[in-house]
Amino acid sequence: MELKEFKKGNFLVINLIGRVDTSNYTELEKKIIEFIDGGEKEIVVNFSDLVYMSSSGLRVLLMALKKITAIGGKFHLCSLKENIMEIFEIAGFTSIFSIFNTIDEAAK
């Protein structure tokens, strides 16, 4: 997994690259907590270069969504590949996350 972030207006966009699984999800967890604790209240996670995510990754996203929702911020996801979207549907995550097709739509 690789992670690259940049600012787009008020939003912090996080590009997730590669695979998030049980062997590396703590890196993602640590980074996201750093961003939120550092004052980021509007975050977009861009999935366009992510090929795989297991329940460990989903747990990190749920934790982040709860944290940001509690402080009145926004936590948006975009550009999920079909197989990852299927996992979100099975997990019932499509009803609690705001999911967009593109970064532009997500960072509005």
């Binding site: 989903l58 749920l62 099975i90 997990a91 019932g92």
Partner: peptide, 20 residues
């Protein structure tokens, strides 16, 4: 999997994926 954000549990998804 129908709980609200606040009440959604962070575990138990793994076996659910296996079944589905």
């Amino acid at each position: 999997i129908d709980e609200s954000i606040e009440n959604r549990k962070i575990g138990g998804l793994g076996i659910h994926f296996v079944r589905k």
